[in-house]
Structures are given as structure tokens and as C-alpha cells.
Computed example of a mutant assay.
Amino acid sequence: MSRRHKSNDSAGEGRETEIRIIGGQYRGSRLAYHGDPVTRPMKHRVREAIFNLIGLEAEGRHALDLFAGTGALGLEALSRGAASALFIERHIPTARVVRENIAHLDVDDECTVLEASAFVWAKRDLPTGKNTPDASRPWLVFVSPPYAFFVDRQQEMLDLVTSVLQHAPPASTMVVEADERFDFSLLPGPVREHRRDDGWDIRTYLPAVVGVWRKE
């Protein structure tokens, strides 16, 4: 997965320039990343930890990668059996990289790339079902914007997550990646205190902090 971050984000150090699919049908496939400074790939170990955490939950689902970057999260989900993937990326050169990676894996028929702001999509399209997967099967939603968005655009992020959770079909899973500056208790629903509790399952993989919500 790649994410767009300001240069002063805490994750800016140790930039990884090679991105590969970690598991599933396309395991080992290399994804394009042209070194654009507005796109920072998520560390391999964090992406691997996320998919270890959600296990087989990609199987048969619609994947939504709302801040797509290189598209690695949505493509990883397809590799692990997702039925389709919607990539939302407002930065046009980066959206071209998503399309390049889709073509490289030859999964064009399963993918849709939307060159738009995820915030605009959530307000304009999500309530009407336009540019949105149908509700015939659960969704697997990835929300991994620039970390600074959780500070500078916090209310917009909260509104986006709330809207997606409201419209997602039952049994959907949402993965939110932030950093330590964000308080996950601000999101709708409780934060787990114990492993068997309901609510956001929060895991820390510094600099990333990941929250997983499973909708009943």
C-alpha cells in the first residue's frame, strides 16, 4: 500500500522503494512505485501485519481502498480472494500508477479506479450507491490517508469513517491506519479493552497505529 504524506510526517524516514504483493495468488508480484514524493509506501511489515490480523476476511468481499496510493492494499485483497476492488485516489499521477499496477496483475475486470477525493465520494456518491460496490456481499474497507489528515482534517476523517460504516453491508470489515496522534475513541463505537470485547481492535506497529472494526 502506498499513502500520500507530507514530508514532515513521522513515517517519512526509512522510505521503501520496492513494493510487492505479500500473499495469495499474486504473491511476490512487484508493484510500480515511481518515487513520487507525494506518495509514501506503507512499510511492508505493517501491511503484512494488517493482513495477518484480518485473516481470511478478504475472501469473496468487495475491497475499497479509499486513499489508494499505489493500490497495494486493494490489490493485496484481490490476491487473497476479494471479488472486486474500488480504488479512490485524487492525485492523478498516482491514480495512473494504480492503473499500471492493475494492468500488471491483469485484474482490470475486477477493478475500478475513481480519480476523486474520498471525502467528496463519501458525501456525494456513497449515500446514493453511485461509484460504490453493491451490498450483495460484505466490504473490506481500507482507510489509510496521510497521517496529518487525522490532525488537520480530523472532523472530515471522522465523518468519512462514520458514513462508510453506516452504509457498509453487515459482516463488513474496516481497517483504519493512523499514527499515535489520533485518538481512536473518537470514532463511532467503543475501543476494545480486552481481546474478546466488541469494538475497535487497536494494534500498534510504529509509526502506524491500526484499528479494525467488524460490523455485525
Rank of each mutant, 00 (worst) to 15 (best):
E216G: 15
N101G: 07
T173N: 04
I22N: 06
L31Q: 06
R3I: 15
R195Y: 10
F142P: 01
E156R: 04
L187G: 03
L73N: 08
E76F: 07
A122I: 08
P169N: 07
V212S: 06
I92S: 09
R96P: 02
V143A: 05
A95L: 09
I88A: 10
D109K: 14
I54R: 00
Q25I: 08
G12V: 10
H104R: 15
P146E: 14
R192S: 15
H194W: 00
S185G: 07
A171T: 10
V113C: 13
K123Y: 06
E110H: 15
G211D: 05
R96E: 14
Q154F: 03
H34C: 04
L64Q: 01
P190T: 05
N131G: 05
V212K: 09
G189A: 06
D198E: 13
D179G: 10
T173R: 14
A118H: 01
L165N: 11
A116F: 08
E57V: 07
G14N: 12
K215D: 05
S84Y: 01
D65S: 09
V209C: 10
H44T: 08
E177L: 12
V46A: 12
L186N: 03
T94I: 15
L78Y: 10
R90N: 13
E115W: 08
H5M: 14
S185Q: 10
D109L: 10
D198F: 03
I22F: 05
V161R: 04
V212N: 08
A208P: 03
K215H: 14
T204E: 14
G199D: 06
S144W: 00
L126G: 13
L105G: 03
L56P: 14
N101I: 04
L66D: 11
S185Y: 06
K215N: 06
A122T: 07
V98I: 15
A103H: 09
R27I: 07
L105S: 03
N131H: 10
A32M: 09
D125F: 11
V176T: 02
H34K: 09
A72Q: 01
P145W: 01
D197L: 04
G28L: 06
G81L: 06
R203P: 02
E100W: 05
R4N: 12
P41E: 00
W139P: 07
D9L: 04
G24V: 04
G14K: 13
F150V: 01
V98G: 02
D134H: 11
V151A: 10
R4C: 13
V98L: 03
P188V: 07
A68H: 07
P93M: 13
L160M: 11
F142K: 00
G24S: 04
D109S: 14
W139E: 08
R45F: 02
A135G: 13
S79L: 03
P133F: 11
K6V: 06
D65M: 05
R4S: 14
S29L: 06
F87D: 10
R45A: 10
